[in-house]
Design a binder for these strands. Structure first.
Lengths: 197, 197
DNA sequence: CCGCTCATGTAACTGGTTACATGATTTA
DNA sequence: TAAATCATGTAACCAGTTACATGAGCGG
């Protein structure tokens, strides 16, 4: 049995990750940008999905450049690189394919909510702690709402960006209302789940 | 400069991941469960956050067992292991610490929404394709809503589970309304973003 | 010129992924 | 008993993570 190559010589380019496509989008949006610019813009975003660490962004743009989805203009001052990247026609095609339609399967889902994950096991807390949890979560969401408003204000100039922020507002609102429902269900007199041990 | 050990002899136990704590919760909820049981229950969940692949779950429960957060009862039939895991007191403490309060920083955030990420760059599509995108996203959300209803029906017996499903319902509803707003903003006559190149 | 922040990376690790292997049990 | 499915894993990989290193520019 041959089992030809342990090291495939011509491995097909892997699917682009969400972060890679997101970065592609950022660069499309604002034209030439350095990796550092990208880092700042990713970390500004209210979602904490990505940490925008250097270890993520620098190799990422290098990958996109190798795949010819980004072009680089290197103004190498001194012995230190100073590169800015622009999106190529192939990059724009990749960006559009990512956006869809058709929508990727992984985009069609209930959004992951860490509060929901935790609430699912709320009955593991002693009964007297459960309302305190809801209160804490409620306060945390107010904090998030604040952050969204700040982000909104910083982008007030762009009416299109406002529509994106709006998504964040609605998300926080609906989760807050859900927490209120949860609090009512936990109100004294209502048994809410099995015993804790 | 000594730089003592390249291999730290006593590395501190790393923070538990979201998935590890979630699994801890599942096992708390239903008592003794095999890794396979866990896999099924994780993959049933409407969220696509985790694939519940064998390669994720089996090593994960082994890790939790090594850390004494799970206890194992091994009914080894034949030469094949058949293990079921239960949560230990230390495991319950870890579960409670994860749930909070206080809530972990990463739980305090706008939920990550792949539709929002894509919509952010909707202007990269040719104008005539933008409404089609919104329609596709709307249809996809209806599909998700259906899935949530099915999940809800399957757990109708447990009033506490209903509160969790409710979160999914509200999430889908609010994102659907957001898409409707988006469609209105894209309505003919309204320029919606910069040119596409 | 010292220290601080800006900017560009690399190194080591890790928690997931997909793909594969294989034993046990059920069903046709 | 053969095929399909249930069940338990391992192997290789990979896109992120944290932590570190270091050059460039600037304000005191």
């Amino acid at each position: 049995m041959p089992r030809p190559q342990p090291q495939k010589p011509d491995r097909p380019a892997p699917r682009l990750s969400e972060l890679e496509c997101f970065v592609l989008g950022l660069i499309w949006q604002t034209g030439p940008a350095s990796a550092y610019d990208i880092r700042r813009r990713v970390s500004e975003s209210p979602s904490t999905q990505w940490s925008a660490s250097a270890g993520a962004i620098y190799p990422l743009v290098q990958r996109l450049h190798r795949r010819r989805l980004l072009s680089a203009r290197g103004e190498t001052t001194g012995r230190r690189a100073r590169r800015t990247y622009s999106i190529t026609p192939a990059g724009l095609r990749a960006l559009r394919a990512w956006i869809g339609p058709p929508l990727a399967r992984e985009a069609i889902t209930v959004a992951y909510d860490p509060l929901r994950s935790r609430a699912r096991f709320l009955a593991a807390l002693p009964p007297e702690d459960r309302l305190a949890w809801v209160d804490a979560a409620r306060a945390a969401l107010d904090q998030v709402a604040e952050k969204v408003r700040a982000w909104d204000a910083a982008h007030a100039a762009d009416p299109f960006a406002a529509l994106i922020t709006r998504n964040g507002e609605l998300d926080v609102q609906s989760r807050a209302r859900w927490l209120d429902e949860l609090a009512r269900a936990l109100a004294p007199g209502k048994p809410a789940g099995p015993a804790t041990t």
